[in-house]
């Protein structure tokens, strides 16, 4: 579904990622972990078109998307949910969701909206409120809902837990799990690996801009323990 081959990228002349490759398959969740500053957000930003890779290829369904503008990437079916539950604060909850349907018709929108309201009833309840009046957790639900409306082939999710109480994470993760099972390729970047890994299929750890290792998510804890005792 999404394939990234040996990308090198950074800001201006500052390389942050060196030779990173990954594959995200339809129906699976890939969890990307690593400490702050390891380059996880830069990786997602580069895939989504926010910065241009200096080298390497990014393929969506076999078509290269590296170097395209973010809005073009989004329209070709890859949706990035930025970190820090960013929504449009001065728009209503409903309008935020509506803007998710940048591509796609009215029918698709209606169906997807119903689904989102089913999963997160609080969004339906507060659909007239300004997004700025939601709590952090609700804003994260809204941001995900907005992405869901777009029905992307690939979903990138940057630190869904950031700024949220731990208790809010499981419902969000199980939503992503069910979403992935409908045939979407999902990539989650997270620091809280312990909670997240049980929802994921594959895992990958990035350290200092390069891939430290990849493994099935079920083996992540063991691998991390091994890495810690060695290094």
């Amino acid at each position: 579904m999404l394939e990234v081959r040996n990308i090198v990228a950074g800001y201006g002349t500052i390389p942050v990622l060196r030779d990173v490759s990954l594959k995200a398959n339809a129906g699976e969740i890939l969890l990307i972990g690593g400490e702050n500053g390891a380059g996880k957000s830069t990786l997602l930003g580069t895939i989504a078109g926010f910065n241009k890779p200096d080298q390497g290829e990014i393929l969506l369904d076999g078509k290269p998307i590296g170097g395209m503008a973010p809005e073009v990437v989004a329209r070709s079916g890859l949706r990035l949910v930025l970190d820090g539950h960013r929504v449009f604060p001065e728009l209503s909850v409903y309008d935020n969701l509506r803007l998710g349907a940048a591509a796609g018709g009215r029918q698709v929108f209606k169906r997807a909206l119903e689904e989102i309201y089913d999963v997160f009833p609080v969004l339906k309840e507060k659909h007239r409120l300004y997004a700025r009046d939601l709590s952090g957790g609700q804003q994260q639900m809204l941001a995900l809902g907005q992405a869901f409306i777009a029905q992307p082939k690939v979903l990138l999710c940057d630190e869904p837990s950031m700024g949220l109480a731990q208790a809010l994470l499981p419902p969000i993760l199980s939503f992503l799990r069910r979403w992935a099972e409908t045939g979407t390729a999902v990539i989650i970047v997270e620091q809280h690996l312990a909670v997240t890994s049980s929802y994921a299929d594959q895992a990958m750890i990035i350290e200092r801009g390069t891939v430290k290792f990849s493994c099935p998510a079920s083996e992540l804890e063991a691998r991390l323990g091994a890495a810690a005792s060695v290094g």
């Binding site: 989504a48 078109g49 926010f50 503008a69 973010p70 809005e71 990437v73 989004a74 329209r75 949706r79 990035l80 949910v81 930025l82 960013r86 929504v87 449009f88 604060p89 001065e90 728009l91 309008d95 509506r98 803007l99 998710g100 940048a102 591509a103 907005q146 992405a147 777009a150």
Partner: peptide, 22 residues
């Protein structure tokens, strides 16, 4: 829709691009 999208641009440019707004 277009008006909302223009408002969105002014509120969070990056988020608007990530959402695929033209």
């Amino acid at each position: 829709y277009s008006g909302l999208a223009i408002s969105a641009l002014s509120q969070d440019f990056d988020a608007a691009r990530a959402a695929g707004l033209p």
